[in-house]
C-alpha cells in the first residue's frame, strides 16, 4: 500500500514549484497544472514502471507518458525533476532564454522525460497510440499513458484517434482526461459543451473509468484499476474530475488562472497555503 501521506507531501512541494515557476517569469499556466498535480505525482511516484537514470527516447522495457495538453508544463517539469530526470535547480530556468524547460514541452532541447513536443492541442493521443503500437511490435508488455485536457477534446484529431484505438483494439494505452470543465474563454459548457463525456467515450468503444483527480487515494485506486483493465482488446480512458487551481484558494472556482501568473503578493498568499516539504528549488 502506497504511503498516501508521502505522496501528498510530494504534491504540496510540486504545487509550490508551479506557482514559483510561473511567478518568476510572469507567464505560464498555473490553473491546470495545480489541478493535475495529484495525478502526476501519483503516476510517477507509484504507478509508472520507469527508470529516470536510464532515460532514453525509445523507452523500451518501460512505461511511457505523453502530455498532450502541453501548456501545463510546470507540473510535469516539477514532477520530472523531483523524480530525478534532471536537476531540481533547473526548474529556475523555466521559460528563460536557452532553457530546456520551454514554455511548452519539447524534445528539441533534449530534456529527459519528454518524447514529443506538445502545445498545439489534440495531437498527443495519436502519438501515444503510435507508441503503444510500437510496443506491441517490440513485444514490450509495458503501457502507454497520455493526459489530455477537456477543452482539448474539441479538437477533431482526438476523435480520429479515438476511433482508431477502439477499431484496432489498442489495449495497452490508458488515456486520462483532465475534466476540470474550464478553458481559456470560460466554462467548457459555455464555450462549446462536450455533452455526456462518459457516454461519448463509451460510444467510441473505450472502457471508461471516473476518478476524483484531487483525492490521492482515489487516484491511486483508479490508476491500478485502469492497469488491470488493459489487455482486454479495448483501450481505457479515465475521466478525471479536477479543480483548476487546486490547492490555492483564490485560484479555484474560476477559469481566470488558466494562463495567468501570480504577482508578488499573490505568490506570497499562495505559498502560505502550500507546505514546503522537500525544499524549494
Amino acid at each position: 500500500m502506497a504511503d498516501i501521506q508521502h505522496l501528498e507531501r510530494l504534491a504540496s512541494q510540486t504545487r509550490r514549484d508551479i506557482v514559483r515557476m510561473v511567478h518568476a517569469v510572469s507567464s505560464g499556466h498555473p490553473g491546470g497544472s495545480l489541478g493535475c498535480t495529484d495525478f502526476l505525482v501519483a503516476l510517477y511516484g507509484e504507478i509508472l514502471n520507469h527508470s529516470p537514470e536510464n532515460w532514453d527516447m525509445n523507452g523500451v522495457g518501460q512505461d511511457l507518458f505523453f502530455l498532450s495538453n502541453g501548456h501545463i508544463s510546470p507540473v510535469w517539469y516539477s514532477v520530472l525533476a523531483r523524480n530525478g530526470y534532471f536537476p531540481v535547480k533547473e526548474l529556475a530556468t523555466f521559460r528563460k532564454l536557452d532553457t530546456r524547460l520551454q514554455g511548452h514541452p519539447t524534445t528539441h532541447e533534449g530534456l529527459p522525460g519528454v518524447r514529443i513536443a506538445s502545445g498545439s492541442l489534440g495531437q498527443g493521443l495519436s502519438a501515444a497510440l503510435g507508441a503503444a503500437s510500437t510496443k506491441k511490435l517490440n513485444n514490450d508488455p509495458n503501457l502507454v499513458y497520455v493526459l489530455m485536457g477537456d477543452g482539448e477534446l474539441q479538437e477533431g484529431q482526438v476523435w480520429e484517434a479515438a476511433i482508431y484505438g477502439a477499431a484496432k483494439k489498442v489495449d495497452n494505452i490508458i488515456g486520462v482526461v483532465d475534466y476540470n470543465r474550464r478553458q481559456i474563454d470560460g466554462d467548457v459548457d459555455d464555450v462549446m459543451g462536450l455533452g455526456d463525456l462518459k457516454a461519448k467515450w463509451e460510444a467510441f468503444g473505450w472502457q471508461v473509468l471516473e476518478m476524483e483527480g484531487n483525492d490521492m487515494t482515489n487516484v491511486l485506486s483508479n490508476l491500478k484499476l485502469a492497469k488491470a483493465l488493459c489487455g482486454k482488446e479495448k483501450p481505457v480512458i479515465i475521466i478525471m474530475k479536477t479543480e483548476m487551481g487546486n490547492g490555492v484558494d483564490f485560484m479555484m472556482g474560476t477559469h481566470k488562472w488558466h494562463g495567468v501568473a501570480p504577482n508578488d503578493e499573490q505568490l506570497a498568499q499562495a505559498l502560505e497555503q502550500l507546505e514546503e516539504t522537500l525544499g524549494d528549488y
Binding site: 503510435g130 477533431g156 482508431y164
Partner: peptide
C-alpha cells in the same frame, strides 16, 4: 500485415501516430 497500419480517412491521426511509432525505433 503486422507492420502495415490502415489508418482510415484520418490523416491528422496518421501523422501523429507515425511520430509515436518512431518511439521504440521504427521507421514509418
Amino acid at each position: 500485415p503486422d507492420r502495415f497500419f490502415q489508418m482510415g480517412i484520418s490523416e491528422a491521426n496518421m501523422m501523429g501516430f507515425a511520430a509515436g511509432l518512431t518511439i521504440g525505433d521504427k521507421i514509418p
